[in-house]
Design a protein around this nucleic acid. Structure first.
Length: 578
RNA sequence: UGGCCCAUGGUGUAAUUGGCAACACAGCUGUUUUUGGAUCAGCCAUUCCAGGUUCAAGUCCUGGUGGGCCAACCA
């Protein structure tokens, strides 16, 4: 198994790490502090893995620390199960926040005090306008907004109203607290943004203590500041929020409200997120997939969520390697799914034990093999790692091979079994197909073959009298019919048939782009050793793909289910397409 | 009819800060192989366009073009 706790792979340089390194060199921040700030309103996906590796990676490599902070300022969307899931995913990825678990809700009292400070000094006011009125007076990107009639309300009055908002005197939506900045600013976010809204909702942590909740913009920078975060890394869509982030910190600082011992303001720096070709990343749409039953749940192996990938058999090491290779920039990007698959294969190839599994079997009878004989053949567990040793595989007169490994009329380039042709059974014997038996429908039901006793283990036979060595082009896998273990295999493919399912005209719904063959469930026949498969153990079904045991399995009852993590590269299939 | 950001192969990221465009994936050749896997080797770019500065520009300047973000009491 790959060492999933080892997270010290060399990290690629990127512009963010350069900034951190420079701040450390100049002594501005000898100990960098970063944070991963998820909102607990869904499960983490592969995009979050980038942010996690980035923030925790910086803390690890620069002798700093990384906080886990739940951005829980909107109780109507957030749930405890998401909090638990997120923590599990981060640990699985191989990172540890130690003591540093925080919640924006830990700071509700401090935030409330700061809001009062801003009101007192004329930097915030309670607005009685409705949502519609506020929208109408905000202006547009090309025209300035106009002031609220409540904008110049005396500070004392706002203070009093704000206290009443907190006390629960008003229903949802009746009033908001707004920052008094600039209704004509070209940045719409600076046109007196809302700081607090009334929400009579149960919060997963603070229960019903509060009925007013701070908005993201008034909570995030302040939380960073309280925690002593030095580099607040976020994605590009928050770029326009940066002036606001800085405005709040600056004003509170000017008013003497700085947290104890803070000599620097946290710095927000943005980076570009990525999309994976053939998948969707927006939480909203992922939630829709789950709610509409398009997938079995957040952990359906076709989902780009971390829970799903874990279940599918993707290793944390391959995920870390992937985000490292993808890198960081200030651009929106679409990564080819092939790069991700390559990273998965690269790790799995090193760590997966090999097993023989026949999907879509066809029976092979070896006519010259003794009826009741069973031989134990020795198979290598992992040619990439000798320490994984070998195992015994039973061989007998009746076997199964994959239907696609036989062709009656084979083209010249077909190296597998054909009528009159010879092939190597991996770790078995060389066999030659003498006869094809079909049913009334013309379907092949059995192949009658002979074997060469001199090829035991799949070895080359000795040279003939003239010194010529017989050769065989192909090697195929097999299972002994009498010993075969029936299993279920779930063959997963990309969820969407198009590269960018969310793209194009708005009318074009991503639902139309779902790949109807994203899940094919079938039965297969496996070698006996597969009965010992463990949950979380990566396996390679030789010549087929990488698989792992699914949690739906019931081993005592003999019910074994395997998920295909990713196929093997198949240059034969590629050549056939041409 | 605004402000801000971005532009290097099919994809993504680099380029000693003005000095021979590098790495990975994909693709294509070939080598090797008891997995048509893996391995190994080779091929694959006038840096969006037009000007300018300079001995020298992916990098600096000017002007275009293309893309993205911003008008939730979401984050």
């Amino acid at each position: 198994m790959s060492d999933d706790t080892k997270t010290n792979e060399p990290a690629e340089e990127n512009f963010l790490r350069k900034i951190v390194a420079e701040d450390q060199r100049t002594g501005k921040h000898a100990v960098p502090v970063t944070r991963f700030p998820p909102e607990p309103n869904g499960f983490l996906h592969i995009g979050h893995a980038t942010t996690i590796c980035l923030n925790f990676g910086i803390a690890r490599d620069f002798g700093g620390r990384c906080h886990l902070r739940f951005d829980d300022t909107n109780p109507v969307k957030e749930e405890q199960r998401y909090i638990d899931g997120i923590k599990q995913d981060i640990r699985w990825l191989g990172f540890d926040w130690g003591e540093h678990e925080y919640h924006a809700s830990d700071y509700f009292d401090q935030l409330y005090d700061w809001a009062g400070l801003l009101i007192k000094h004329g930097y915030a006011y309670v607005d009685d306008q409705t949502l519609e009125q506020m929208r109408a007076t905000r202006g547009t990107v090309t025209s300035p907004g106009s002031a609220s009639p409540f904008r110049d309300r005396p500070a004392e009055e706002s203070l009093d109203l704000f206290a009443k908002m907190k006390a629960g005197d008003f229903p949802d939506g009746a009033k908001v607290l707004r920052a008094k900045i600039d209704m004509a600013n070209s940045n719409m976010l600076l046109r007196d943004p809302v700081m607090y809204r009334i929400l009579h909702a149960e919060h997963p942590r603070t229960g019903s203590d509060w009925c007013i909740y701070p908005m993201y913009d008034f909570a995030h920078g302040e939380s960073d500041w309280i925690e002593g975060v030095t580099h607040s890394l976020c994605s590009l869509e928050f770029e326009a929020h940066r002036p606001l982030y800085e405005w709040f910190v600056q004003k509170i600082d000017e008013l003497g409200g700085a947290p104890e011992g803070r000599t620097h303001h946290p710095r927000q720096i943005e980076f570009g997120r990525f999309n994976l070709s053939g998948t969707m990343m927006s939480k909203r749409n992922l939630l829709a997939l789950v709610q509409e039953g398009k997938v079995a749940g957040w952990d359906d192996p076709r989902m780009p969520t971390l829970v799903a990938m874990r279940r599918r058999g993707v290793t944390p090491a391959s995920l870390r390697n992937f985000v490292n290779i993808v890198g960081m920039s200030r651009r929106h990007k679409t990564i080819e799914i092939a790069l991700f698959e390559n990273c998965v294969r690269e790790d799995l190839n090193k760590v997966s034990q090999r097993r023989a599994v026949v999907i879509d079997p066809i029976k092979v009878v070896i006519t010259n093999y003794p009826d009741d004989q069973v031989e134990q053949m020795t198979a290598t567990n992992n040619p990439e790692n000798e320490a994984d040793g070998t195992r015994e595989v039973p061989f007998s007169k009746e076997l199964y091979i994959q239907r696609e490994d036989f062709m009656e009329d084979a083209p010249r380039k077909f190296f597998r079994l054909k009528l009159g042709g010879e092939v190597r059974l991996r770790y078995g014997y060389w066999i030659k197909c003498e006869e094809v038996i079909k049913d009334d429908a013309g379907e092949i039901v059995e192949l009658r073959c002979t074997y060469d006793p001199q090829t035991r283990g799949g070895e080359n036979p000795p040279p003939d009298e003239e010194g010529n060595v017989r050769k065989v082009k192909g090697t195929i896998h097999w299972v002994s019919a009498a010993h075969a273990l029936p299993i279920e295999v779930r063959l997963y493919d990309r969820l969407f048939a198009t590269d960018n399912p969310e793209a194009g005209k708005k009318k074009r719904d991503w639902r139309e782009n779902l790949n109807p063959e994203s899940l094919v469930t079938t039965t297969a026949l496996a070698e006996p050793a597969l009965a010992e498969a463990q949950l979380g153990q990566p396996l390679q079904f030789e010549r087929v793909g990488y698989f792992t045991l699914d949690a739906d399995s019931d081993k005592p009852a003999g019910k074994l289910i395997f998920n295909r993590t990713v196929t093997l590269k198949d240059s034969w299939a590629k050549q056939q397409k041409k």
